[in-house]
Design a binder for these strands. Structure first.
Lengths: 221, 221
DNA sequence: CGGGCCTTGTCAGCGAATTGTCAGCACGGC
DNA sequence: GCCGTGCTGACAATTCGCTGACAAGGCCCG
């Protein structure tokens, strides 16, 4: 967990270093706006603590340039007490949080943890099974990286098989899952969907175990 | 963009409602801890503003119970001035931000926006998705740099899609966030808004995945 | 207070994509 | 070789989403 502290006051920088270090961060410090900009733009930090009053380049400008370059690591800004307008500006420039000086170290650490916790909680929702990839955010399917157009029903079928982890799924269970069991379909409806999918995906993706059901090949042999 | 305001003081609640409403949120309010807990646990909000002193159940307990149930929407806590210990507790209970009372409405709105941005994994107030740019501060939209006049409702739709990061958003979810679920609309209302937007933005901006919902094209290929 | 403009929900019709059904075919198991 | 299960292609029905028009409501300005 790397953290960058941008602060020109030696004493405060040392305190921050100590407190964040004790909280489990690997801390680097930097006292000047240009260095800060360069480091933040090229290195990969889990958190940046940024003081606004800096030599060589103003903290707000640094922040804006990071954001303009698409860097979106969490940034905690330190502001002067009571300058609420400055805080609004900071937030609109892309700060994730601010702390008015002077502050309690406990509070800084708590907010740092909260920021990191939040920025970590964004997993990509893609599942890969054999040559098949499905993205549950985009509701899309790809085969060996090539996107394949599938309809809603086809997607749901694939998704259910994928989440079943290669298990052989009986037709009854699939029917029940795809449609409510309220409205009944001919048993053949399912076979038709599978057939259409196989035409799109080619052989070797959806397997049949005669008398038992369907499964995704390549997931668990 | 639905927001829940939990505040027992009628006047403050009304002010918050007005300010957040003007900032483009669809605001619901609630004055008691138990209701708050129930709403936050069952409904889907983009933001919750939570006062700590509440009847029926303490704000911190409400928050903890949400988090214990795995609800991770951004929560902005209102605290009494100077009670920094209370703030640390709040953050460790899972608050994403706090604001000491009394506060400036401008600041609250700025932080609310920042929270929503952050929870979508974006750092900046200006979002670019494909040819589309939207500025969450000014509530304005541009297409390839050319400003486009959109209505409040259209903007909210675009903003929600943009903050969803290109995910396919089901119509039900969109309806819920554009209007509260208090007043129901025909399903067609949504399609009408999308149609109007497409007329303004041209093709290739808002995509449809039949059977699933809408998404912003070009957000990540 | 009245008038006009802007916004937005609703309706009805249309077109296309999706999907169920059917009938015949293929293939595997015994 | 026979039987049954599952596959396929064609076809038709249906669902889904889009569009344009219209009307109701809201808001600003005179």
């Amino acid at each position: 967990m790397r953290a960058l502290v941008v602060e020109d006051d030696q004493r405060i920088a040392a305190d921050l270093d100590a407190a964040l270090g004790a909280a489990g961060f690997v801390v680097e410090t930097c006292a000047d706006g240009e260095d800060a900009w360069f480091l933040g733009d090229t290195e990969d930090y889990a958190l940046i603590v940024l003081d606004l009053g800096l030599p060589a380049m103003d903290g707000l400008s640094v922040l804006k340039r990071w954001r303009a370059n698409g860097r979106n690591m969490p940034v905690l800004v330190l502001t002067a007490r009571g300058a609420w307008m400055e805080r609004v500006e900071g937030i609109e420039a892309g700060a994730d949080d601010y702390l008015p000086k002077p502050f309690r170290m406990e509070e800084l650490v708590a907010r740092a943890r909260a920021l990191v916790r939040r920025s970590a909680g964004q997993g990509a929702a893609v599942h890969s099974i054999g040559a098949l990839t499905l993205d549950t955010n985009r509701m899309s399917v790809a085969l060996r990286g090539v996107p394949v157009r599938v309809t809603a029903l086809e997607y749901r079928l694939l998704a259910y098989l994928a989440l079943s982890n290669g298990r052989v799924v009986p037709p009854g269970e699939l029917l029940e899952h795809l449609y409510g069991d309220d409205d009944a379909r001919e048993a053949n409806a399912l076979e038709a969907v599978v057939a259409r999918l196989r035409r799109k995906l080619g052989a070797g993706v959806i397997g049949t175990r005669r008398g038992f059901g369907y499964f995704l090949e390549g997931s668990a042999a």
